[in-house]
């Protein structure tokens, strides 16, 4: 019973983070800000689900089941990479950013920061 509650909690936390991340994708005003939602909240959302799944399958009496952790590990490695590449592409295409975005790139080299 206790296990059920813990698993439920992790599943719900995971789903909540995924939902919040996706909501950020909808309502934040510019691309660079939207980038934050998926890279962080959604990744942790999957993480929460997977912890729930690990606990669930490990308590089914068939030994410990850890292979789900590979997915989290993989996402933790790839999410920053795809976020970085997307940001780079957005800078390359000079996507609009909200007015108030401050640009504190001190070394004003050529390229997007010197815009």
């Amino acid at each position: 019973m206790l296990v059920e509650i813990i698993v439920s909690l992790f599943l719900l936390i995971g789903a909540a983070f995924a939902l919040i991340g996706s909501w950020g994708l909808v309502h934040l005003p510019d691309f660079y800000m939207r980038l934050h939602g998926p890279t962080k909240a959604t990744t942790l959302g999957v993480g929460g689900m997977i912890v729930g799944s690990v606990i669930f399958f490990s308590t089914q009496g068939e030994g410990i089941s850890l292979h789900e952790l590979l997915i989290t590990l993989f996402l933790f490695i790839t999410a920053p990479v795809s976020a970085h590449m997307l940001a780079k592409a957005a800078l390359h295409l000079q996507l609009e950013r909200v007015e108030k975005t401050r640009d504190v790139a001190r070394k004003n080299t050529s390229g997007p920061c010197g815009k």
């Binding site: 983070f17 919040i20 309502h27 934050h36 939602g37 942790l44 401050r102 070394k107």
Partner: peptide
């Protein structure tokens, strides 16, 4: 830190977008 930061970002996302102060930093 990932867990802490995620909670922070989640709170920021749920709050009004007008209050956010985005910036590019070198």
């Amino acid at each position: 830190d990932i867990v802490v930061a995620n909670v922070q970002v989640a709170i920021l996302i749920l709050g009004p977008a007008k209050r956010l102060r985005p910036a590019f930093i070198h």
